[in-house]
Design a protein around this nucleic acid. Structure first.
Length: 361
DNA sequence: CGGTAAGAGCATCTTTATTT
DNA sequence: AAATAAAGATGCTCTTACCG
């Protein structure tokens, strides 16, 4: 069997079948079903927060159990594989084989430098009305919890088409944060760990040239994610931290079906990238600030800034939500008011100029 | 087997910007 | 304003592994 191995030590060893977006969808579905049928292993924690004891125990148990199982029904297969001709057993199995032969290598890297190499899915068995698929518990843990906590399946179709190992690493980590905040900051040291460069590229210039630049170029050439801006924050003369400003163009929750599921996402985007919990809340915002001109770049910048500040203070998955006792909507409004206040002078002077020019006519 | 390409490392020169 | 460290740009070599 021929396997395409990329020339550098890489996260991914491609199987003989290309992972396309359809197979990626299938994989998303498997991950989703795995979650659904193994609810006891779901950890609902916020990013950057310490895990509770119970949650830590869940992670430990995941390490012990070896693999998780789920079923994928024929109906689900049909909704993913649209072409009638491809809905036959042989074709479906071909797609499972693609996932079975593609190998993913990762290090959980918490205590030791342990590396794991596993197929994207394990055993597949066929029954009368469904497929039963197993998935390595370690891989599940890595995909969902390692890079940060949250439900963040990476897009394999994107991942597999990134050539450089650094692109892959950066994509996975940015993807894991992009649902939470737009500006993602790392110290150079953290980034070195993420890229696993060890003692290579001691000088930042070399590091940047060989890893960051390569990765950003490649990621920006995908249609899944755009790194809009890259900032370097200096401490003295040397770069200490870097910030990626990311626009994630991939839907976060591809799992739209099952309306009763609590992970369902109805969020809408307001003013370029402000993620609002739902349409109703967005309307509320627009109504509340209906005296503002949303076309104005100044106004936009003001809201963007307030939004970023809100997320920094209250980092949750859904951005501006308004649930009983769990609202960062109020915080956002508070910050907006503060911003309006500090900008008032300039806004006012602008207004005055306008009104005087108007009186001339 | 040799050609090719990517990654890595090193050296050199130029540019930028902080420090004094 | 001058000194100087850091970063940028470029080019060369070496290694490795793919590919015909």
């Amino acid at each position: 069997m021929k396997k395409e191995v990329l020339n550098t030590p890489n996260n991914i060893i491609k199987g003989k079948i290309e992972i396309d977006s359809q197979i990626n969808k299938l994989y998303y579905r498997i991950l989703y079903n795995i979650q659904k049928e193994n609810r006891q292993y779901i950890i609902k924690a916020k990013k950057g927060e310490e895990l509770t004891e119970d949650q830590a125990n869940i992670l430990e148990e995941l390490d012990r159990i070896g693999y998780l199982k789920c079923t994928v029904s024929y109906d689900e297969i049909q909704s993913i594989i649209r072409r009638r001709n491809d809905q036959v057993k042989e074709e479906v199995l071909k797609r499972f084989i693609a996932l079975q032969t593609a190998i993913f290598r990762f290090s959980t890297g918490e205590t030791t430098n342990e590396e794991t190499q596993t197929q994207l899915i394990g055993q597949v068995s066929v029954s009368d009305n469904s497929y039963t698929v197993s998935l390595s518990a370690k891989l599940y843990r890595y995909l969902f919890y390692s890079v940060g906590v949250g439900f963040t399946p990476v897009n394999l179709a994107v991942l597999f088409n990134l050539k450089s190992q650094y692109s892959q690493a950066l994509y996975v980590t940015l993807r894991s944060w992009s649902g939470v905040k737009r500006e993602i900051e790392y110290t150079v040291e953290e980034l070195r760990e993420i890229f696993n460069v060890g003692s290579k590229y001691k000088a930042y210039k070399n590091f940047k040239q060989k890893t960051i630049n390569v990765a950003m170029d490649e990621i920006n050439n995908t249609s899944a994610m755009k790194i809009v801006e890259f900032k370097e924050i200096k401490k003295g003369r040397s770069v200490d931290k870097v910030v990626f400003v990311v626009e994630d163009l991939e839907p976060r929750f591809v799992l739209e079906e099952n309306k009763d599921d609590s992970t369902e996402d109805k969020s809408v985007i307001w003013l370029d990238y402000i993620k609002v919990e739902n349409e109703a809340l967005k309307e509320r915002l627009e109504l509340k600030y209906n005296d503002m001109n949303f076309e104005s770049p100044i106004v936009k910048a003001l809201f963007h800034k307030s939004y970023d500040k809100t997320l920094n203070k209250d980092n949750r998955f859904t951005m501006i939500q308004d649930k009983k006792g769990k609202s960062n909507f109020a915080l956002f409004n508070f910050i907006v008011n503060g911003e309006i206040f500090t900008h008032e002078l300039s806004v006012e002077s602008q207004f005055k100029i306008n009104s005087t020019t108007q009186t001339l006519f």
